[in-house]
């Protein structure tokens, strides 16, 4: 990584922040801190998208994830009475095998990525226009788009059916 380029400094700062925030998500004993640090990690990935010239995806990420999904998670935390505040029993006891699996996964993924791509540059970062994304969705990816809309409809109906109180009881 060439540290004489300003983009790489931005990348380094964002990446370190994201890794720290996601570590808090999985380690923190406080559920609220975990959920709110997920906002930090996702905001960092929106910044990475802007760095890559994908502003529309960054905007959608902020709207959908940070605006809607995190709020849903906070409702989930409150409804299921996860112990808010410090709690002892949020984790399993077998912490070290899980850490070994995670470190092995990281070694394989990162090692193969570095070994295969070396330091090949992403050349010419310029923003993709949103109209190009729209054209691609509605020309090349029309069928997947419709399928995704059906998935959303099914999730909507499923959520209502699951969360509704039983009429008999």
């Amino acid at each position: 990584m060439d540290l004489s380029v300003a983009q790489n400094w931005f990348f380094l700062i964002i990446a370190l922040f994201m890794v720290a925030a996601s570590l808090v998500v999985v380690i923190s004993r406080n559920v609220m801190h975990a959920a709110l640090m997920l906002v930090g990690a996702l905001g960092g990935s929106a910044a990475i998208f802007i760095l890559l010239g994908a502003e529309f995806v960054a905007g959608v990420l902020v709207l959908v994830y940070i605006g809607a999904i995190i709020v849903l998670f906070l409702f989930g935390v409150m409804i299921t009475r996860v112990p808010i505040g410090r709690a002892r029993s949020l984790d399993h006891d077998n912490r070290w095998p899980a850490a070994a699996v995670a470190i092995a996964t990281f070694a394989v993924l990162a090692g193969s990525a570095v070994a295969f791509f070396g330091d090949e540059e992403i050349e010419g970062v310029s923003a993709v226009r949103t109209s190009d994304i729209g054209a691609t969705i509605f020309e090349r990816f029309v069928v997947p788009f419709e399928v995704v809309s059906f998935v959303l409809l099914a999730a909507l109906i499923g959520g209502i059916v699951l969360a509704r109180k039983d009429p008999e009881s």
Binding site: V5, A15, T105, A110, V114, I122
Partner: peptide, 15 residues
């Protein structure tokens, strides 16, 4: 920016 730095960041988040 190299492609590998993004892949390593993504691998870290995934693990």
């Amino acid at each position: 920016m190299t492609i590998a730095q993004f892949l390593v960041l993504s691998a870290a988040l995934f693990s």
